[in-house]
Amino acid sequence: MTNTPETGTDPTAAVTRPKVSAWNIANVVTVIRLAMVPFFTVCLFLPDSGWRITALVVFLVASLTDLLDGELARRYGLVTDFGKIADPLADKALIGAALISLSALDELPWWVTAVILGRELGVTLLRFAVIRHGVIPASYGGKVKTVLQIAAIVCYMWLGVPEPIRWTVMGAATIVTVGTGLDYVIRAVRLRQVANRARAQ
């Protein structure tokens, strides 16, 4: 964060704003979520039903940390570029591990996993492709997409959920996933256009 003059005061006087460290509590929670992914995956593949429940609990706790780190970052002014990149990456790692595992267990068609992960990979590459122009933060639609994906995965992990409900929730998650992916493409193009115009001036 750069120092800028305070509005309404002597323009020669600059207000020094403290720089937010990338290693703050919000980002630590994000890193913890990443660390939970391999443990969740191992639990899901273990045959005993007790491990299945453990995997579900770990998945839900990891998903809730997404709300926690975002709230901490906003409430205490801990928003950083690292967090803007690491937070969605942690979400993608958790969701990706769950989808791939469910497909490997023959509980979810591979084409669904391919569509969702193809979108997630595309958006991630797009973020890095335009990062020199600026960071594209997660949108409201992206948050809705994540909630729907989590709900759909829980439906598949929770034994006994009727198949029509599973497919309905997963179908909604897939549609919103693709739709928000197109939105990111539009935002990236606009960001690049704005950056190019700024350089031209």
Rank of each mutant, 00 (worst) to 15 (best):
D66N: 10
G122L: 15
E71R: 12
N196A: 15
R190I: 06
K143N: 10
L105A: 14
V189Y: 07
R127I: 11
F40H: 06
A114T: 14
L191E: 01
S63T: 09
V147W: 11
V161I: 14
L89Q: 07
G160Q: 09
G118H: 14
T9D: 01
G179S: 13
S101I: 02
G50H: 07
G8P: 00
A22I: 04
L148F: 13
I136Y: 04
A93C: 03
N196T: 12
I186V: 15
G8T: 01
L56F: 09
Y76H: 14
I100T: 11
R74N: 06
P109Q: 13
L102Y: 05
T4L: 10
K145Q: 15
A173P: 02
A152G: 10
G96R: 10
Y156M: 02
R166Y: 03
C155A: 15
R197W: 03
N3E: 08
A129Q: 13
V58S: 03
N27P: 01
R197D: 07
V194N: 09
D81C: 00
P164M: 10
G142Q: 13
N24K: 02
A188H: 03
D10W: 01
V112L: 15
A90L: 06
L78G: 01
V57N: 08
A129E: 13
G134N: 11
W167D: 13
G160M: 09
G179R: 08
P109A: 15
V161C: 05
P11Y: 03
R119D: 12
L68A: 15
F45H: 13
W110K: 11
A93T: 04
S21Y: 01
V147C: 14
P88G: 12
L117A: 13
A195R: 04
R74G: 06
I175A: 15
I25P: 00
R166L: 01
S49R: 11
R187A: 03
W51Y: 13
P88Y: 10
V123Y: 12
A62L: 03
G96F: 05
A86N: 07
L94V: 01
K143Y: 06
Q149Y: 06
T80I: 05
D10E: 04
R127H: 13
C155T: 03
E163I: 08
I175R: 12
F45N: 01
G142R: 11
K145W: 08
V135W: 04
E107W: 03
L46H: 02
K145N: 14
G160E: 08
T16N: 03
A26M: 07
T124E: 09
G70T: 09
W111L: 05
D10H: 03
A173V: 06
V115H: 07
I186C: 08
R33P: 04
F128D: 09
L108A: 07
A13M: 04
T80E: 03
T54A: 15
M157D: 04
P137F: 10
G142A: 12
S101H: 02
T180Y: 07
G77R: 08
V161Q: 08
G160F: 08
G96I: 06
G50E: 02
F45K: 07
C155F: 06
S21T: 10
Q149F: 08
T2D: 00
V144M: 14
V79Q: 12
I116V: 12
I175Y: 07
I85S: 09
T7I: 08
L182G: 15
A172L: 15
L72C: 02
S49M: 00
L72F: 09
V29A: 14
